Computed example of a mutant assay.
Amino acid sequence: MVRKPATLKDVAALAEVSRATAARALNSYGYVGDETALKVQAAAKKLGYRGNRLAQALRSGQLPIVGCIVGDIQNPFFAHIAHDVEVLARECGYNLVIGSSEEEAEQEISLLASLRALSIRGFIVAPTSTGDSLHLKSLIAENIPLVMIDRVAEGIRCDSVVVDNEGGARKAVEYLLAMGHRRIGLLQDDTRIFTSRERMSGYLKALAGAGIAADERMISVSHSTVERAVDATIRLFNQKAPPTALFTVDSLMTQGALLAFRSMGLSIPHNVSLIGFDDFDLATFTDPQITVVSQPVSEIGRAAAGLLFDRLSNLDGPVRNIRFETKLTLRGSVRALAQR
């Protein structure tokens, strides 16, 4: 017959103390007399009591664990970042817990609350909203290290790693303009998201710089998923005077646009030109390959993790904000139109 593992109740009974006293003696918190502590420890040893050391360590904050909450783990950009953060965490002797907000503020708040209950040492977060940030401000108020990645939230002074979203988008649209395009479509995400708003700003500034008024018929808003981007692209190109070129604000939307063009029988770049923000594997496997605004993804995750571990070793150090430049990677998805 298999003997059941000893419980705290068993230890307390053998030592003739309460369970609360046994717990204090075994977990080294609160006051327990020396003689009582020795009795409890002897009883635990005799019974082979082990306890839940993992739970105890989590509650006391002794385990070296950090958290990372990204926008959507299915997005190749965030998947790459999470991987790089985990690699550096291991190098620094930490474990990483990863959560995905799926770009929902409520889910981000819930995830953060759950992870905080585990006494996690610090967080890397890609904020879903620039304004709804009380849950993040509470981290700062409690001196829990926070690094914002890819996006920043208003009114929070903490370490961050972002890229020049506006400048990258502006370069892409200016290139389309230089190639003779005037009806340039924009496929974007919800503007409550920092990156989407910044990239839209770059799009609008490029048009304004060329003396072209923004046309709401050229802008289609979609959730950042391949399926939603397909529908949004089809709506945009079913107009009487559709765009001659399309700029998409992330790689999932670029993939959705590619599928939509295929379903509509539109050939790239003969019928429509395309530039996407974010590089992705499929961009170099298509024919033609897709012109993109590249981010230094391999540097972003490691930079954020480096800031977090530096902060964990020096809570009072100066705030550091890193901003990487982007690069317009020219391939074959844009064709020149005759200037009029």
Rank of each mutant, 00 (worst) to 15 (best):
E103D: 01
C158M: 03
R121L: 13
G122I: 04
A113F: 06
L134E: 15
G155Y: 01
N143H: 09
E106P: 00
D164S: 11
V162R: 13
E102V: 02
G155P: 04
S100G: 05
R151W: 04
L146H: 08
R116D: 07
G155A: 01
R151L: 03
T130R: 15
S129I: 00
R157K: 13
N143S: 15
V162K: 07
P127T: 09
S110N: 12
V125I: 12
H135K: 09
L139E: 05
L136A: 00
E154C: 06
N143A: 15
V162H: 01
E103V: 02
I140V: 15
D132M: 10
V152T: 13
P127V: 01
L112T: 04
I156F: 02
R151M: 00
P145Y: 04
A126N: 13
E108F: 02
E154F: 00
G131V: 12
S100A: 09
S160G: 05
S133P: 03
E154D: 15
E103Y: 10
S119V: 04
S110D: 08
P145I: 03
C158E: 07
M148S: 07
R116K: 14
S138H: 11
E108D: 04
L134K: 14
H135T: 12
E142W: 00
S101R: 11
A105M: 08
S119T: 10
L112S: 00
S101L: 09
E142M: 08
A117F: 01
I124E: 03
C158P: 00
V162W: 00
D164W: 01
D132L: 09
T130Q: 15
P127A: 06
S138V: 03
L146E: 02
G122Q: 05
S129H: 11
R121Y: 06
E102A: 15
P127Q: 07
I144D: 07
S101W: 08
T130W: 00
I149Y: 02
S133G: 12
S100L: 03
H135G: 10
I149R: 02
M148R: 02
E108K: 05
L136P: 08
E102Y: 00
A141M: 11
T128A: 15
P127H: 09
L139C: 01
Q107V: 07
I156D: 06
E104F: 05
N143V: 07
R121V: 00
L111T: 02
